[in-house]
Amino acid sequence: MRRFDDARVAAVFKSYPPTVRSDLMRLRELMFDVAAATPGVGKLTETLKWGQPSYLTEETGSGSTVRIDQAKGREDGYAVYFHCQSGLVGQFRELYPGKFDVEGERALHFAAGRRLPVRELRHCVGLAFTHHSRKKKAHRGDRPLAG
Rank of each mutant, 00 (worst) to 15 (best):
F4L: 03
F4D: 08
A7C: 04
A10K: 13
V12M: 11
V12G: 07
S15E: 00
Y16F: 14
P17D: 04
T19G: 01
L24R: 09
L24M: 13
L24H: 09
L30E: 15
M31K: 04
A36G: 07
A37W: 04
T38K: 13
G40H: 02
V41A: 11
L44I: 09
L44Y: 02
E46L: 06
L48G: 11
G51M: 00
G51C: 01
Q52E: 08
Q52L: 03
S62G: 02
G63V: 01
T65Q: 14
V66K: 08
R67G: 00
R67F: 00
I68G: 11
D69M: 03
A71E: 08
A71P: 05
R74S: 07
R74P: 02
V80F: 08
H83P: 13
H83C: 01
H83T: 12
S86Q: 12
G90S: 02
P97T: 08
G98P: 08
V102M: 02
H109R: 11
F110P: 12
A111S: 12
R114Q: 07
R114V: 08
C124F: 05
V125D: 02
V125A: 09
G126W: 01
T130K: 12
H132D: 01
R134N: 11
R134S: 02
K135Y: 03
A138N: 13
P144N: 07
L145W: 06
